[in-house]
């Protein structure tokens, strides 16, 4: 009987090594170890053995059984590994093919720049104020210390709708509107992005363009605060290593006034084509709010002071993205816009 057990077992082990399908492996297992399997049948004959032989035979059968089961497991693991290998080989793709299309649009570069400027000033505690693009002569000029026939009005060629109503030439009227709305609240701390218009159209001027105005009014506001805020802005906008410098200038609604230069973002100040060799690039105009303007806005210039500044968004965008021709910004060629 022991011989028979070993024969059946050895034969099954040999057969097993030759099988290469897991179904066949299962079949063989049933044939040998199943209820009606050959080894099981032998086990049933154990009853005819003497009580002394029974445990010996039992041990032989069990040993064979566990050998077989172990071999089965090993073989089926082998087969699984082979099958997986095959599948992986079959499923290989050309990973160099382009990815699936994702439809994503693009923000206009001017929107991106305005939002970036907004975010920087929001971070410094400024609110965003707005005002109409079609504006009265009063807000656009008079309240900004530019009475009719003031020679400085000539700096700006305006588009008129009537004698008293025009397309605003600057975002500065929002200064007055904001102060009128907030007075006597302190501090006034706003920026005002917006579209402005001047009767000018050539390679470096667009009849419509964008500005961001800034205004801060409070007790004890100093020109050095203006410098600090603008340095902070310039570094966030153009890089941590930027410096700024102020140059005396003239605006009717600020006194003292200053033009602000930032150290060249291209050469770092050594001098290059972008900064025309000076190391500095003019980015905005600014100054301490003129007492008359504070008065027009409803604040007492004896009690409060303030600073104001204004920058051209197109210019900032051109500097930031290295855009050489301003007209590209309004040409709306998708090949240009889809770069941003």
């Amino acid at each position: 009987m022991k011989k028979e057990i070993l024969r059946i077992g050895e034969e099954a082990l040999r057969e097993l090594q030759q099988l290469d399908k897991s179904e066949a492996l299962q079949e063989l297992k049933v044939k040998v170890l199943g209820k009606k399997g050959t080894l099981t049948a032998l086990l049933r004959q154990m009853g005819s053995l003497s009580p002394e032989e029974r445990p010996v035979m039992g041990q032989v059968v069990n040993e064979m059984r566990s050998r077989l089961e172990k071999a089965w497991e090993e073989r089926s693991a082998e087969l699984e590994a082979i099958a997986l290998e095959k599948r992986l080989a079959a499923e290989r793709i050309d990973i160099s093919l382009p990815g699936s299309r994702v439809a994503r649009g693009h923000y206009h570069p001017l929107t991106q720049v305005v939002e970036e400027i907004e975010d920087i000033f929001l971070g410094m505690g400024f609110q965003i104020a707005e005002g109409p693009e079609i504006e009265s002569d009063y807000y656009n000029f008079e309240a900004l210390n530019l009475p009719k026939d003031h020679p400085a009005r000539e700096m700006q060629d305006s588009f008129y709708i009537t004698e008293e109503i025009l397309l605003r030439t600057q975002t500065s009227p929002v200064q007055i509107r904001t102060m009128e709305k907030l007075r006597p609240h302190l501090p006034v701390k706003v920026i005002a992005p917006g579209t402005v218009y001047r009767n000018d159209d050539d390679a470096t001027h667009s009849p419509m363009f964008h500005q961001v105005e800034g205004l801060m009014v409070d007790q004890g506001i100093r020109m050095s605060d203006l410098k600090g805020i603008l340095l902070n802005f310039s570094r966030q906008m153009f890089g941590e290593s930027r410096e700024i410098r102020l140059r005396p200038s003239f605006f009717p609604f600020t006194e003292p006034s200053a033009e602000v230069d930032v150290s060249c973002m291209l050469c770092g100040g050594a001098g290059c084509r972008l900064c025309k060799g000076t190391g500095w690039i003019e980015i905005l105009g600014s100054g301490m709010v003129h007492p008359k303007v504070l008065e027009m806005g409803g604040y007492n210039p004896k009690e409060v002071t303030g600073f104001a500044f204004g920058m051209g968004v197109e210019r900032i965008a051109m500097l930031k993205f290295g855009i050489e021709d301003m007209r590209l910004l309004f040409d709306n060629d998708l090949r240009f816009l889809q770069q941003f």
Binding site: G123, F126, I128, K189, G220, I221, S224, G228, I229
Partner: peptide
């Protein structure tokens, strides 16, 4: 010099 406004902080 370069300074920052001295008033209370505001939230933008």
């Amino acid at each position: 010099p370069t300074t920052l406004p001295q008033g209370d902080t505001t939230q933008g």
